[in-house]
C-alpha cells in the first residue's frame, strides 16, 4: 500500500531489531536528538505502536493528536438471512452467523473488506471504527510522532501506516520499529530507504538478527548493523556480519553507566556526552547510504 510520505525528498531510515531489548529506543532517540542539532529535517517516529516508549526519553507535551479509524463491517440484519458466507469467508473469525443474523467483533477484523464483497444479500456496509491515535510532540527543536493502538485491537498496521503518513514532506524520518519480523515490523520497514539493524553479541541476539537479515533481503531494503553491549557475549555476531558482508556502522560498549542513565529516562548523549560522537558519525554514515539524500542535496543546491 502506498503511503503519503514517499513524496519530495522524504527519507525514511528505520532502527530495527529481531530481538526485543537490544537498544532500538536507546539508539533511535539519541540518534534523533543529536542529528536534529545539525539537520533541521530530522523527525523522530515511534512506530512501536503496541508499546511506544520513545517519549520517555524525548519528553514533551502532546501538541496535536488524531484518531486513526479503520473500516469494519456493519450488518443490516433486516437483509441478513444467516447464510454464513461472510463468516465462513472471514479468516479472522470477526463475524459470527446465527440463525438469521450476524454478529461483528470489530477488534478481530483486519479490514480486508471481503465480507462485504461476498455477501449475496447486500447486507454488509463498511463503517469507520477507531483503532488508535497518532500523537505529535515537540521536544526542543525536534518534532516527534508516535502512534498508540487501542487496547484489544489485534491488527496494529493501520496505526503504523497513519504514523508514517504523518511525516512532513522533505523530512529525514528516523523510525523506531517494533521488534521482531512480524506484520508490525514489515509495515514499518517495507518502504524505508535504509534500515539500521541493532543487535547484541549474544546467542539470542545472533539468532534474531539472522531472522531480520532474511526479512530485509526479502523486502529488498538496504541495511547495515549496529552492535550494542559489545563485550557482553562472544564474537559470533561480528563473525556472522563479516561472513555475510554486512557492514557494522557503529558499536556501543557494555557500559553500566549507559544502563543507569537509560533507566532514569535520560538520553545518554546528554548524561554521557562522550558518546555524542558515536551518534554524530552514525547519522552521517546513514545519510551517506540513502541515495535520495544526494539527490535532495543536489536539488537544494541547484535552487540556492
Amino acid at each position: 500500500m502506498a503511503t503519503g510520505s514517499g513524496s519530495e525528498g522524504t527519507i525514511k531510515i528505520a532502527i530495527a531489531s529481531g530481538k526485543g531489548g537490544t537498544g532500538k529506543t536507546l539508539i533511535s532517540t539519541n540518534l534523533a536528538w543529536v542529528a536534529r542539532e545539525d539537520d533541521p529535517r530530522v523527525v523522530y517516529l515511534d512506530c512501536d505502536v503496541e508499546e511506544p516508549n520513545g517519549h520517555l526519553f524525548l519528553k514533551g507535551e502532546v501538541e496535536r493528536s488524531r484518531v486513526v479509524n479503520r473500516l469494519v463491517p456493519e450488518i443490516n440484519n433486516e437483509r441478513c438471512d444467516g447464510c454464513s458466507i461472510c463468516s465462513d469467508f472471514c479468516a479472522f473469525n470477526a463475524l459470527a452467523t446465527l440463525k438469521e443474523s450476524t454478529l461483528v467483533f470489530p477488534e478481530l477484523c483486519h479490514s480486508c473488506g471481503g465480507c462485504a464483497l461476498v455477501c449475496p444479500n447486500d447486507a454488509i456496509v463498511e463503517v469507520e471504527h477507531p483503532v488508535g491515535t497518532v500523537r505529535m510532540r515537540k521536544v526542543g527543536e525536534l518534532a516527534t510522532i508516535d502512534g498508540i493502538v487501542n487496547i484489544g485491537v489485534s491488527s496494529v498496521t493501520p496505526v503504523i501506516q497513519a504514523v508514517k503518513q504523518s511525516i512532513p514532506a522533505g523530512s529525514i524520518a528516523l523510525l523506531d520499529a517494533s521488534p521482531g519480523t512480524a506484520c508490525p515490523a514489515v509495515e514499518t520497514l517495507k518502504d524505508c530507504d535504509f534500515v539500521l539493524l541493532i543487535t547484541e553479541p549474544t546467542p539470542f541476539g545472533l539468532n534474531d538478527f539472522q531472522l531480520s537479515v532474511e526479512l530485509l533481503r526479502e523486502l529488498k531494503v538496504p541495511f547495515a548493523a549496529m552492535i550494542n553491549r559489545v563485550g557482553v557475549g562472544d564474537n559470533r555476531v561480528h563473525d556472522y556480519c563479516q561472513s555475510e558482508g554486512i557492514q557494522v556502522l557503529a558499536e556501543l560498549p557494555n557500559d553500566r553507566r549507559i544502563a543507569e542513565v537509560y533507566s532514569r529516562g535520560e538520553l545518554i548523549t546528554e548524561g554521557l556526552p562522550e558518546y555524542r560522537a558515536v551518534f554524530e558519525r552514525l547519522y552521517a554514515m546513514l545519510l551517506d547510504r540513502c541515495p535520495q539524500n544526494g539527490m535532495a542535496m543536489e536539488k537544494s543546491n541547484g535552487t540556492m
Binding site: 454464513s84 463468516s87 479472522f92 473469525n93 470477526a94 459470527a96 452467523t97 446465527l98 440463525k99 467483533f105 478481530l108 489485534s154
Partner: peptide, 30 residues
C-alpha cells in the same frame, strides 16, 4: 489452532448443530 476467535468459531458450530445447551469448564466474553 485458530490464531484468534476460536470461541466465536466454536460457538457457531453449536448454533449450526441446533444445540440448546452447553456444558463446559469456562467460557470467554466473545
Amino acid at each position: 489452532g485458530a490464531a484468534q476467535g476460536a470461541g466465536i468459531q466454536a460457538a457457531q458450530r453449536l448454533v449450526r448443530a441446533d444445540v440448546k445447551g452447553l456444558v463446559t469448564g469456562h467460557c470467554g466474553p466473545k
